[in-house]
Each structure stands twice: as C-alpha cells, then as structure tokens.
Amino acid sequence: MDDEFKRELLERLKAIEERLDGLDTSQSQLQEAYARSRAHLRRFWLRPPMWTFEQHSPRPLDLRTLPAPPSLPTCVPTIAIVTPSFNHGQFLAATIDSVIGQNYPALSYHVQDGGSEDDTVAILKGYGDKISWRSEPDQGQSDAINQGFAGVDGDIMAYLNSDDILLPGALTYVAKFFAERPDIDVVYGHRIFIDYAGSEIGRAILPAHSIEALRYAGYVPQETMFWRRRVWDAVGPMDRNFHYALDWDFMLRAQAAGFKFARARRFLACFRVHDAQKTTKNYELGRKEMQRLRLRNLGYVPSQLEISRAIAPYLLRQFICHWSYRLGLLRR
C-alpha cells in the first residue's frame, strides 16, 4: 500500500464521514490521526474489520476509553440474562463478574451448565446466592438457553456465552435506551475482541442496522444483543436444531415478524477469541446451518459472490465507521 493510496483513502474516509452524525474533527486532528494510522494501514489492509478479530497485538483492556454509565430510567425494567455453559471454567468467573458487577437493581441472572467436567460447578457454588444456576446434561446451547429462561423472567432479555463479558454500564445503558425508544424491540452495539487472557486485540464499530444485509449474513454481535420480552413471546425460544447459527436464526425470525432492530452507538460487550470456542472449532457445521437459513429466508442458496454483492454496501459503511473511529474522527 503506497503513500499515494493511503492519502487517497484517508481523504475519501474524511469526505464520507463528514456526512455522518456525530463527526467532530479539525484539520489538526486529521493530521494527527493520519500520523497515528500509518502503521495500522500497512498491517490491516482492506479486510472487513467486523470479522477481523486480531487487529493488533494484545494490550490491556482500557475501560477509560468508554463513556460513563448513564442514569437509570424512572421506571427501572427487569433484565433477565442467561449464560449457557459447558467446560468453560477458565472463563466463567470473568463472565459472571461482568454481569453481577453491573450492580443493576432489577437483574435476574442464571447460569445453565451442561454438566461440565472441569471446575465449573465449584466456581458456581462459590457465588452463593448471588446467582441462580443448574448443572445437568442438555441437548446443546439452544436447549440450555431455553432451560435457563424457563426459570427467570424480565422485561428485557439477553444471553451471554460463558467466555464473553459485558462492559461496565451496559445494562443501565440498555434499560435507558429501551425506555427512550419504545419503537425499538431489539438493540445491539459495538464489540471489543479479547484474547484468551482477556487482553484487547481489536474493536468492531458497526453502522446502522441493515435489514437487507441481515438476510444474507448474521453480522449482529450476539453478546451485545438485548430484546424485549414480547419478541421472545411472539417468535418462540431458540431452535434446538441449531447449534452454531442459533442467534442468527432468532434474529431472522424476529425481523421477519416485524420487530424493529437498532444499533446503539456504544460498546456493550467483549467477544473472546480462543482455540476452544465454537466459532473456531465448528466452522463446517456453522456453514451448513447458515446455508439452511439462507435457503429458508431467501428461497435459494446464494453463491458466495451473491452474498458478497448483497452485503457489500453494509461492509463499506462498516469499513468507513471503523476507520473513522480508528483515526479519531468518530467518538464512541
């Protein structure tokens, strides 16, 4: 990538991003951002940032870059969160701590473990009455989530996998967002990628929700997604026939039922990248499940070229948002 191309890229990003909401920049800021970006441009190239987990070498997760939690709404909604778990003892405590550490006053939190053989049960027992939990064999992640929600209730619902974590203030933000936006049924936000040890390795800044793009690709970060109870009641629980694309299936059913999605302008959670995760180990199973969903929702199985063309406008917007954030042109 030569200097002329880099200058042209930065100029185009600046021109387009000036049309987006929330832009706050100056010529001096742009020059400073360009200087900071040179090394990143050499390494990152043009891959879609939302699907590029390892964007830089591991570094401590700096929570000072996140905004302070907002104030609670006048009427505090109850939030029900379920964590499906199986042999993730090395990550589970961090996940639980990220939820109960929110100090949200109306939280129902349950861990549904599939009969783990590691130290999971000992970890769960260590929390006493701070959480509810069960450990017993199940039929997979979807079944565990459904079992978990059978025992907890809330105005707002979400599930958080046992290797991911919520960011501080996420629940308060979500509660206030839903209170201020009664027209929105499902909300999700930006995500941070962390490694096995919990160090940050990248970020994904998402543009506004695209109904069309979601029909072709499950791009919504599941760990950041919350929905109103009425969505679950209308479209039903997680489909136990899906073990990889269960979240995308749920989103597609909700979108097809007319429920409205919105992307929040805030980092809400961290997605952990490690060798033992389903996303890494079960790619072929995931590919088959995604093809099933495309056949069901589109009426045919599109080629990779057709998928790329359909989601290209969304990926371009995401690329612009990502680099505008990385260059300091956008504040999140």
Score class of each variant (00 low, 15 high):
D3N: 09
F5Y: 01
E18V: 00
L20K: 08
Q31E: 15
A33G: 15
S37Q: 05
L41I: 10
P48W: 14
W51H: 08
E54V: 01
H56V: 00
P58Q: 02
R59L: 11
D62E: 11
T65E: 15
T74I: 07
P77T: 11
P84H: 10
V99H: 12
P105F: 08
A106I: 00
E117C: 07
T120V: 14
T120M: 02
A122E: 15
D129N: 12
W133Q: 05
P137L: 12
D138K: 04
I145G: 09
Q147G: 10
V152Q: 08
D153G: 11
P168C: 03
Y173L: 10
K176V: 06
A179M: 04
V186A: 00
I192R: 11
I192N: 00
I192S: 08
G198A: 07
G198Q: 01
S199E: 14
L206F: 15
S210R: 01
A213I: 06
R215L: 14
Y216Q: 03
R228M: 03
R229T: 06
A234K: 11
M238E: 13
R240H: 05
D247G: 01
D249V: 00
H274M: 02
E289R: 01
M290W: 05
R294K: 05
R296F: 07
E306P: 04
S308A: 13
A310R: 03
I311V: 14
C321K: 05
S324Y: 13
Y325A: 14
G328E: 10
L329G: 12
